[in-house]
Structures are given as structure tokens and as C-alpha cells.
Amino acid sequence: MRRNPSSYPLTWHLMDILEAVFSKIWPKGGGLWNPYLMLSPAILLIGLLVLGLGYIGDISLRTLDTSTFLFSEEWSLTNYERALTEPFIRSVIWRSILGATIVTMITLLLAFPYTYVMVRTRSAFLRKFLLIALFLPFFIGQVVRAYGWLIILGKQGIVNDILGLVGIEPLRMLFNYPSVLFGLVQYMFPFAVLMLAPALTAIPEEIEAASESLGASWVETMLHVVLPMAKPGLIGAGLVVLTLSLTDFAMPAILGGGTQDFVANAIYDQFFRTSDQGFGSSLAVILIVIGSLLVWVIFMLVGAGTLALGAKDK
């Protein structure tokens, strides 16, 4: 039986409108090109990004003349050479990669049990509590959260006040590498849980029951059944956390107290503090290359996880 058009989903109506507008503009239609024309907004968006990247790539090959603050007409690899030989920049790049890797591992370790409990619990109260605990900080911006940690962990902060009650001298818990990683883990945690939740929800509970009925302990079931089946979710969450951490600006700037710059902070300095957009652009290109390489290696080793959007893993 034919459905009543009013019961069609909203997206179908939108497509109808788009088609009507399209046929008004081009009555003969695009024939086989129609699907590609539908893709044009996405292509336009990507095109703009590529255009921006092209500009960054171009300016990264031009050196700044500090006697005129104009860029060279000729291309050269001077900025890249400087970026890869200057000890400070090398240490910043290394700190960013190491930090992003540590943050990804810790975040996944924490997010997995949290998500598992959230999707498996039979208590509606607990599920709601975990969801609220997840989303409440999610709705607060990164900068505000970082300043929140300054209030909590600062020398005059709440934690030191409590330690003071038992006679412990105030400790400096901020402005070091661990505090930046801590802030990043706290910031990335909801992203990881949100990426993991669909993957864990998709694992039928019956499979766990079957595993245990065949004699596997709960630990064995987790290790040999749930974890392998959750792998796509773990990979997807890991990729998101890794790339976001690698390019983060606010946490190193605020919780690092000027002592723990990541690449994004170095880029900001070059663009806005020393006005050397050429060198800053070369750092941006290096960051993009590093991020892409890391993602490519993960794709090659373990696939794209849930980011493959249904495509079969190799």
C-alpha cells in the first residue's frame, strides 16, 4: 500500500524541495550528473579547505624579511629546515606527539569501563547519572574547564586547602606536563565515551552470556569477546582523541603555564607574536603531516574502526 506523503521523513521532503528548485533552475536536468551535483556543497566545503591549505603551503615556502616584514617572492625550504633543526621546535613537536599518545591511551582506558557500565547497567538512575556526568562538562567550553582546574589545583586552590588541613604544605600541581595531560584526558573523555557507546551497544548481551555459559570467566569474556568486538569503536575513539590532543592549544597554554607548549601554541606565537606567518605555516603543515601520518599508520595497522562508516575492514 502506498504511504501517505505526509508520513514521509523530513529529509525526504527536503530532497523534494531541492529537486523542485533544481528543476526550475535547470529544467533539462543533469541526468547522470545529478548525484555529483548533490555532492557539490560538500565539494565546495572541502574545496575551501584545500584552498586554505594551498595558501598555507604557499606561504610556508616564503621567508620573512625582518627589515621590511614582507615575504620573499621566491620559494625555499628555509622555514622547514629551521623547524626541523631548531631544538626548541623539535622538543615541542616531540612533546605534542608523546602527549597525544599518552592522552589517547589513558582516555581509552578510562572511557571503556565507563561506557560499558553506561550501556549495560539495568539501573535507569545510574545510566542517567553517568550520562549527566558525561554531558555536563561537555557543554562547558574547554577554556572555562581549564580555568576551573586552575581554581581546583592552584596553590591557593581547593585541593591545597584540603591538604593544608592535614598539615601538608601547598604543592604546585599545575604548570607542568602531567597537568596538561590531565586536563586533556578530562577534556577528551566525553568524546571517547560518545564514540565507544554505539560500538558497545551493538554487541548483543547474549553473546557475553553465551561466552560465560561456555565456561569463560567474566574477565576472559571481556578480553576475548567484548574487547575484540569493540575494536572498531576503540579505534574510532582513539583516532578522534589522538588528533584532537595533537592539535590542542588551550590546555597546554593554560595548564602548562607557558612551559609546556604544543605545536599549536608555537604556531600561534609565530603568527601573532613574531608576525612570521611563513614559519608558522611551515609548522602548521608539519602538524598536518604528522597527524595524517599517524592516522594513516593506524588505518594500515588496524583499520578505520567506526570511522569507516560501515565499510568492511580489510
Binding site: T66, S67, S91, V92, G258, D261, D269, Q270, F279
Partner: peptide, 18 residues
């Protein structure tokens, strides 16, 4: 200052973040 500050800032940061 403007001709050299980039180098000075980098050097200072390299020492402080080393």
C-alpha cells in the same frame, strides 16, 4: 628588537621549556 625578537623568544622558551 623586531629583527631579533623571534630568535630571542625561541631561545628563552627553549631554555625555560627544556
Amino acid at each position: 628588537q623586531v629583527e631579533n625578537e623571534s630568535e630571542w623568544f625561541s631561545k628563552f622558551k627553549a631554555i625555560m621549556q627544556g
